[in-house]
Amino acid sequence: MEGESLQGETLGKITHQNHDGAPTKMEVDKLSAFYGSKKAVSDVSLAFRQNTVTAIIGPSGCGKSTLIRCLNRMHEVSPGGRIEGRVLLDGTDIYTEDPVSVRRRIGMVFQKPNPFPTMSVYDNVAAGLKLNGMRKRAVLDEAVIRSLKQAALWDEVKDNVHGSGNRLSGGQQQRLCIARALAIQPEVILMDEPCSALDPIATAKIEDLIFDLQKTYTVVIVTHNMQQAARVAEYTAFMYLGELIEYDRTEKMFEQPTQKLTENYITGRFG
């Protein structure tokens, strides 16, 4: 998938490999999310297929970030955050399980790169494994190198893995955070506008990376950038005012949306 070719052109050329037959990895079932008494997500149901990238798009404040934070129980960390409904991972409701172990199976990459500033590149990537009690140097080494390679950062940091992560550029820091999330080998990776703080070149690198990640992981990405959704995601969900308006294959969404709201948003009439 060539990032540049789609910029500003018609979105008609998108062709993702078809995974319509792939099993459901995660399923959101009649989910509503609240901050105190304020409802941010309203009765949303949708399913994420295994080894695919699904984008959640929509204007600011539509609840897309809240929705993705419900998928690994980060929403309940926010003051007043609570949910109704179910979120299933391989058929089991994650809200009946321990949130800590849920988050080890469902990794997350945040809007702003947030590496641990007091740790080296190596320790950042190894942090999750060390939390799990892993102390064996050889295992850690292997995991750190594998994750940094998967995150397409290895070549840029291999000479200084024990140096501070602070000296990296914003894009490198975000790839470091992706490597950190990959190191504990989660099954699902959630990304909350992972490129919103990055320049176009860094963004293109991360998009390529996201596209590759679906071979191993199930990826859900929140983005306000429709071209980005078109480039990386096979499926797209459009949210507006807390509700799921439309959810379909990305090319279908962009070419023949069934809802007027979706069409207006995609054609830039509001947003």
Partner: peptide, 22 residues
């Protein structure tokens, strides 16, 4: 910053581990 706590929580850290490591 809250993002630092989220980084640790997102890795599956408990509250004590989040406090300590981040």
């Amino acid at each position: 910053p809250e993002t630092q706590r989220e980084a640790a929580l997102g890795l599956g850290a408990t509250r004590w581990e989040t406090t300590r490591m981040s």
